[in-house]
Amino acid sequence: MALFSKKSKHLPAFWTNYENRFKEKIAADLNEITFVVLDTETTGFSFDEDRILSIGAVKIKHETIAVQEVLDIFLEQEKFNKDSVPVHGLLKNGQRNCISEINAMEQFLDYIGNAVIVAHHAGFDMGMLNMALNRNGLPNLKNKVLDTGVLYKRTLIKTYLIQPKTNYTLDELAEKFSISKKDRHTALGDAYITAVAFLKIISRLKEKRKFSVKKLLH
């Protein structure tokens, strides 16, 4: 009940718009579903301490990515962790056009709508995004989420003697599927690599006997 009152009182219009888009049901045909494949670059790995530096995302529908419809946003930083710079090559307020966290969330929610979110090791990205939303007085994301790390493992044949590794990095996936690792460690670059890997994983999963869209999204 507490949730109810909170909802109508304080939440901004863009959140309500986002929420309303979930009234539409997700299509049953894989090709009709919109997937948003995303990646975030952050100042570090702590949900409490660290912040999102940038969000990159691409939309997939009908196994097609439109170059025009990508999301590539950079966030203003109060806290700046020097250690993570060499990995991402993103300097604080570098030459990019940076926006505030709340504006970034508005743009992000508007972009994703009720799409199914896909990310590599999605738990981390979702955690960072939800923390950012909560900091601005907003609830958690409502989208369905798929993790390419988990999905990839389902394409492998399981035998008792050869156990798949517990964890596959995005680099390993890129190698397995011969995807160029150009622009690795930028949010949009990683999102694109993840998107291609996702398409290839899905086409392999479809071969499996027990594949269904319903199960995929359970």
Binding site: E63, T64, I65, V67, V196
Partner: peptide
């Protein structure tokens, strides 16, 4: 041209 391209995956 590049900005308007669609990237299409085909099985």
């Amino acid at each position: 041209l590049a900005e308007q391209v669609l990237i299409i995956y085909k099985e």
